[in-house]
Design a protein around this nucleic acid. Sequence first.
DNA 1: GCCACTTTTTTGCCCAGCGCAACGAAGTGC
DNA 2: GCACTTCGTTGCGCTGGGCAAAAAAGTGGC
Lengths: 395, 395
Amino acid sequence: MNPGVTGRGTAAAAVLGAVLRHGPVARTTIARLTGLSPAAVTRNCAALAGLGLLTEVAGPLPYRGVGRPHTPVDVETGRHLVAGIHVAHEHCTLALLDLRGRVRARLKVPHRDPDDHEEVLATAADRLVRLHAEHLPGHVPLGLGVAAGGWVDTEAGVLVEHASLGWRDVPVRDLLAARTGLPVLVDSHARALARAEQLFGAAGHHESLVHLFVGNVVDAAIITGGGAHRGTRSAAGGVAHLALGDPAIECPCGRNGCLEATVSDRAWAWRAYEAGVIARPSIADLGDAAVAGDPAATALLVDRARIVARAAALLFDIVNPDVVVVTELGVIRLPECADAVRAEVAATSRACPSPSAVLPSSFGRDVLGVAAGSVQLDAIYADPLDIRNPIRLGV
Amino acid sequence: MNPGVTGRGTAAAAVLGAVLRHGPVARTTIARLTGLSPAAVTRNCAALAGLGLLTEVAGPLPYRGVGRPHTPVDVETGRHLVAGIHVAHEHCTLALLDLRGRVRARLKVPHRDPDDHEEVLATAADRLVRLHAEHLPGHVPLGLGVAAGGWVDTEAGVLVEHASLGWRDVPVRDLLAARTGLPVLVDSHARALARAEQLFGAAGHHESLVHLFVGNVVDAAIITGGGAHRGTRSAAGGVAHLALGDPAIECPCGRNGCLEATVSDRAWAWRAYEAGVIARPSIADLGDAAVAGDPAATALLVDRARIVARAAALLFDIVNPDVVVVTELGVIRLPECADAVRAEVAATSRACPSPSAVLPSSFGRDVLGVAAGSVQLDAIYADPLDIRNPIRLGV
DNA sequence: GCCACTTTTTTGCCCAGCGCAACGAAGTGC
DNA sequence: GCACTTCGTTGCGCTGGGCAAAAAAGTGGC
């Protein structure tokens, strides 16, 4: 309750957050970064080290010639890990992450019967247990994060409505907790990724950011003042059906010109396929063609980037975040697309602070796993002293 | 630092906030509302009463027949007040508000020389001192809030750029503080009003709200999770230049179809004037005509409401707040306009929880004064124990 | 009028957690 | 070996919350 000290959350969270962002770092530096007293930093570091979240490292001391040298501390990545399950249309992506959000093991599990959610989740859980046993048996799992597209009730841990699988009111948390014995948290894909970008990605230390995701669904997530913004009905960031797209395209929602109907992976792949640019309607093929140097493919992806930029510009104007992170195939793989978005945003938006405020996503092929694990990591970094060493994975 | 107890801010703020919202209320009820223990409520109430922010009232006890009766406490409106100066294009609006945000005295001061900001502010300050001496000499002023359209640096208390007066980098806080001896806070019009609606208006206890202001400028303000969202460059809520308006209309910004260029008071009054509905291009005349029953005037205002509704729908989808409060002449004065907005939003937005989530502004003719005073009241309710009884008004 | 009973409010005590300041630690340069 | 500098730790006091016991302020029965 001392003013201006910790911002939101506990002091321990502030300390751990500073350590995460500023690599191996001396305690006095942490004190400066967080505004805490050196004494408080020492005590919190001790508590965090006791939980195995922090270690002293024998730093490559860049000695300053005078005074007692630093004893840098860093996030302990060798003892704990976090599991993640991302539930998509055709498969689950499983991942084990360390506390720096790095994927240490991954596995893609196709759904046997997509309609049978119990079977899908049970299989995912079992494979996860095996993944852990095979790859990182020495690491203690702290929890499991689940990310999915669509509407999620985070409090209840229920997947209210999955965007493409058609699941309804699936009690994901309880099902997976029973099967793994781990604490389980569930959140929407977009919010999880936004938080991941803030914790581990290029968006680094920015206090506010917007994450714009373009895949088969289009969704945005807003983070302001330290926390993800959910909105009344957990529906914040609904940009899918804004009329920013091609007015000639009908959307299943009944209106025309919806952003999602125009620029989703599926829609754009079809557009490219029909234009004869690729041999089958696959967005990955389009990306490969463009990366290989096909000018028509590149042009198509740049076109998409320009439309995506309209949404980014809108978000800049309305939310005015420090940065907008864009997860979209073209922007990630082709510099031309990223430039196109930046140029378009700079030209359209009044509030975009600088072109460099538009960033491509940082997680490459591992996005889905990182998203899922980050659901749990978010909670750990928000209140690190609250972790309960769980029962061993696998019950 | 005890989990889940006070939400954001101090316990005293939670207590005072609960008292503000729930009228005269028993301490036990406050405990239930805030999640604090009865003991903590007692202590905080004592502290707040000591500062003169709270009183015990000899309540009209609705006695429940058994047990010790309540001793209701309420916000003390008879000892302190807050001053406000709203700086507009042609005049300053001065107001003295009590702690419930009610305007107790008001005065409109036309600018003698709009270009001479020092003179304008000095005159406003002097008239404010006189207003206090004449009307409420017994009340102790706690501070002065300044609201203005345009770009405001709240930290520095500087009006970076006024929307219509053309002022630049005016150190409003220092000028007025020197002249009045009061603590001065400066904020943008839109944010101040949003906060006022949340504190004193119909938006009551909603945690998140968006305020959409349509006057000669068009602006939105976003409040989430307890605090106004400023954005990186204090530019959050920039809806003025979204392409939601009439594509035939050119905007000074260089593009076409901007919302502000289409629906601002000035623009719409001209439209009505040119259509022959009113005798001179005045939005007030248009409102009067509509209220008097002129169907053409009403139709024009309903048209405007529909366009405004597009912005409201957009804000619902992107921010997903509990409510959107609309400050616009038609919506405030004509039920038809409010209904038009509700219908349009319900039809367009996917995230609007219910038509009743669109509310007209609550402050009638006093909006400007309330906005200005609320800049200061906001700070008081955010950290009530922090008030310093200032030097007597007038130095 | 007095007592049992109920509910509100206060008081006393304990405990977490931070800041302050003094102290111990670990180096360099002379 | 000693002065000096900076880093990290420890002891102490303060703030402010919770818990539990006590006090307060009524009603209704006798």
